[in-house]
Design a protein around this nucleic acid. Structure first.
Lengths: 222, 222
DNA sequence: TAGATTGTTAATCGATTAACAATC
DNA sequence: TAGATTGTTAATCGATTAACAATC
């Protein structure tokens, strides 16, 4: 047995992707005054298999109690720690159109480990405006961003501007980017990018829908 | 060999999830006047392994040409057909805050197989307003939606309203829902739901960031 | 023809699920 | 103790990748 609790390594990507969902459900439970839960309850709330929940949580070294379940508060802390949310991460939003404003006003961000630390736009018409208590800065000011290495950059510009903005974020020292523009961006290797693409999600829904309506017609008996 | 081209079945979910990305890249290529491409080029543009591209495309029965590559126009048609995008799907948006307005004005939707067919909100202050050429209807009007079975419902409300809206969409006959509200919703089995959750994506980025910065400190030599 | 690139097979890898001993 | 539920192992399933014959 190791002398100290060694840092757990190699949490599967699929597990990491589910941890935020568990965290959200636990938050709702805590608000409702629920103290304790089970893998079955969590599974139903998130829409996965109970064994998957137990497997996921076992990667955290989080210890539930056999015969009893999981302590809501304790599990919340465990998952938060694993995700790195015991501190707040600064977020900057680039592009203050409707989408950017929606994100800036997103009540959930501050309660879920993030704080909006800067708003940037290239349009002189919006620079200087105040949104959710912050003033919109010119895009050029991104170069002076403090704590850039800790900051997550969110791209909420039109598609045409996404690559230019990504380059500017990288030049400013940002290494984590959430791309909400409907465009692909290319960044150097050490930069971590995730995408949110409404149109892609709709297209996947369309595929399922078409499959469901097309299938019966094809099932003609031999 | 089958007498007719049998309908392909069982395209893997992982493949379906990547088809929209191929489609987007092909669109950009077509605009740039590129006629032909290869699995390697597509792979680099999308950020995946070339063998994965070939495997994905082989599920479509789409035929590239050995030694030559894929015809951009032909492949575009094949993927569009597979995703069910040879027709336009109506989309209704519920909740016309900043997020809903961003979606309603999303230039990419109409060019990617969708048309915004209705806007709904519960707030009397916004009902009757015009957004992107459409008038915002009261939420109660959702019950009279024509072609509900073909329609995709997009929830862009605050978290607190998400479940109520989902129930109303389902009652109106909608079977495909994109949930952009920061809340989980529960729907009856035949309804297909996908989520877009900014906070979850940020949390996954935070995990990677924390892992990257924490790791060196832990790698103390024995 | 020689060079290029697909489509497909087989090998590998990772994720899910079933099942149950451990144990509260 | 009896009942409940975890943590973990082993089995299954699906997805990725390497490799190469097919063939343009």
């Amino acid at each position: 047995m190791p002398a100290t609790d060694l840092p757990r390594r190699g949490i599967p990507d699929a597990t990491v992707a589910r941890l935020p969902a568990y965290l959200r459900v636990l938050g709702i439970m805590a608000e409702a005054g629920v103290r304790s839960t089970s893998s079955l309850e969590l599974a139903q709330a998130v829409g996965v298999h109970p064994a998957k929940v137990r497997k996921d949580l076992s990667h955290l070294g989080s210890h539930g109690v056999r015969g009893v379940g999981y302590d809501v508060a304790h599990l919340t802390v465990e998952i938060s720690r694993e995700l790195g949310l015991t501190r707040d991460w600064p977020v900057v939003i680039v592009g203050l159109g409707n989408l950017g404003r929606a994100l800036a006003g997103h009540a959930g961000l501050s309660s879920r480990g993030f704080s909006v630390a800067g708003l940037f736009d290239a349009d002189p018409a919006v620079i200087g405006q105040s949104v959710s208590g912050l003033t919109i800065s010119p895009m050029s000011a991104i170069a002076d961003l403090p704590r850039a290495a800790d900051t997550v950059g969110v791209i909420a510009t039109p598609a045409a501007a996404a690559q230019v903005v990504a380059d500017q974020l990288v030049a400013a020292g940002i290494t984590s980017i959430l791309n909400c523009a409907p465009a692909a961006i290319v960044v150097p290797a050490p930069v971590d990018v995730r995408r949110v693409d409404i149109a892609s999600e709709l297209q996947i829904l369309a595929f399922h829908k078409q499959r469901r309506t097309a299938a019966p017609a094809l099932a003609v008996a031999p």
